[in-house]
Write a protein that binds this DNA or RNA. Structure first.
Lengths: 335, 335
DNA sequence: CTGAAAGCGCTTACAG
DNA sequence: CTGAAAGCGCTTACAG
């Protein structure tokens, strides 16, 4: 079985007594083929066990129906939800998704971009690694195929973008804590050089300014946007001579590490210290205790990214779009 | 930029003053090209901005370097870890991964199989949907390309398989609960017809038999292997006239729903009722309270699946392999 | 060590 | 409504 050669369109044509052009048109459901011929061809396809060879079709038609989606980490719930959104929309439109995971490595990202372009993807959705360089940006700007950036904006990238309003998200989170009377709020986790970190920082500052309070830089500790990052950051900040009374976390994942660290120090979130996360991943609801967090909408971001890419691939409207979804505060038991 | 035609190998050859055969060999690092020629060609590639067209190469060489991986749900941590394992190994071997998600739908799975075969993937790793039919099995058995099944075994599928010993996993979990003195243990979540459910059931029964106890069928409630499924199942089982004193959950995800449901009924896990999960996903450690669970090794399963597939794709040793990893009990605070 | 020629399996104008 | 011919951009024997 394995070694038997694949039946070709040519053989189908011969078997059905028509030309290859006709078979090709039948396969692609071209309406200008008569019902009788269509049936004849499908019969031959069935009896011969013909399998369409997209590789050949792609070469000839110069388009593959494949869209590359590059993300930083699929094990992150925010990302996997984002992916599901993008994939659903893309598949509905008839595209196949080629997935790449960078694990936040820029060189991995560069390699993936190359591979995907060599595979002639029709378009790309990129959730950029946080340390993406100028070179990456330049490359993205010069890409011969449509691309949409998601979740993280890149400086000087002249690109369509879909993400959420991180400034506002951080702002409403910190404002909430300030209104509860906190004056010393920590900001833990996330890579300081990334746009996602910087924008949250801006929201953080904005809330402090409006409250006419001064923030303490020693309560700001960055690190990897992971559970471990949160754990390490909270351990550090608790050693501060004047520790915080509340913590704003870069993400729910970071918050999960923070909760772990707090438990180790016998501090009860929501009682001894208030915590707010970011993302509203499903698990945040069953953290111990359930986490107050900022809801971003990963599936919607995925959907939107795919929709915009689809427009870029099919229409010839080159106007750039920048879509910013608005976050919401979800108050639970940690604040 | 977008509309400029892609530079072809032919143009590179002309620019470098060699034949296309030579350029082709240079690109693929064939050692029988002299250093001088190689350099000349690479210079031309750089100045012209040539991009290798894998679609054309694939057609001619009749192999794509693409491996299809089909899973039931990427938002599930067990699966995403499995995927990372498979992807790492595959990428190291030079393959590109085409990902498909079935969301446990058999028709989706069939479509994905078709798409991937049409795209001429060199091999497939399939984490089958639980309700896969005989037809699917037959199709898989007749596949013209190498395939490895993972995580869920299919009856009569004459396939290589990598998974863990679910019987033993359930056995050690239930034995642990019995040793703690429990006599009424519930088994919640999971699809009754799936091999993963059935094998856990067998382990469950085995533990009861060895303890010379009789199990109560009314404490066995199946359902979707999700958080919601767990929530619903625990709600049902608590209405039992004679409710269980301990619960064995199909998965950690199910357990998370069970914990939620228990909280609603003001029952404290580990105190009022004991809980054991299955999978040891990272989150289980920070559930409230931290979950006792059975550790399966999703990344290792991914790695192994990829390794076996790689052997099938490259060597001509047709001997079937069936690899069963051994699970471990991780005791935390819910028991 | 390198080149000329054929061909992978489709789709695409074009002709009728 | 259908067919004959060319060609997408590579790789593959084969020759020298």
């Amino acid at each position: 079985m394995s070694k038997k050669h694949r039946v070709t369109l040519h053989e189908v044509a011969e078997h059905a007594g028509v030309s290859t052009s006709t078979v090709s048109l039948v396969i692609r459901n071209n309406p200008r083929i008569s019902e009788a011929t269509r049936k004849k061809v499908f019969d031959s396809i069935d009896t011969l066990g013909y399998v369409y060879d997209r590789v050949a079709a792609n070469l000839r038609s110069q388009s593959t129906g494949i869209v590359g989606v590059i993300v930083t980490d699929i094990a992150n719930k925010f990302i996997s939800e984002f992916l599901i959104g993008a994939q659903n929309t893309l598949e509905q439109a008839g595209y196949t998704v080629l997935l790449g995971t960078t694990f936040a490595s820029v060189s991995k990202q560069d390699k993936l971009l190359s591979t995907m372009i060599e595979h002639r993807v029709d378009g790309l959705i990129l959730n950029p690694a946080s340390k993406s360089t100028e070179k990456t940006v330049e490359r993205i700007n010069n890409l011969p195929i449509p691309i949409v950036l998601a979740n993280r904006e890149l400086d000087d990238a002249n690109c369509d973008y879909v993400g959420i309003d991180y400034v506002k998200g951080a702002y409403i989170a910190v404002k909430h804590l300030l209104e509860k009377g906190h004056k010393r709020i920590a900001y833990l986790g996330g890579i300081k050089s990334s746009s996602t970190w910087i924008e949250r920082m801006r929201g953080f500052q904005l809330a402090y300014e409006k409250a006419e309070l001064k923030l303490d830089e020693s309560l700001i500790i960055d690190g990897p946007p992971t559970r471990e990052g949160g754990f390490d950051a909270v351990s550090k900040v608790l050693q501060n001579g004047n520790p915080p009374t509340a913590i704003f976390c870069f993400s729910d994942l970071v918050a999960s590490g923070v909760l772990q660290g707090l438990a180790l120090h016998k501090l009860t979130p929501g009682v001894d210290i208030d915590i707010v996360g970011f993302d509203n991943i499903p698990d945040s609801e069953i953290y111990h205790p359930p986490l107050t967090t900022v809801s971003s909408f990963p599936r919607s971001i995925g959907n939107k990214s795919a929709t915009i890419l689809y427009e870029k691939m099919t229409k010839s409207s080159p106007e750039k779009q920048r879509i910013i979804l608005q976050p919401e505060l979800i108050i639970r038991e940690t604040s």
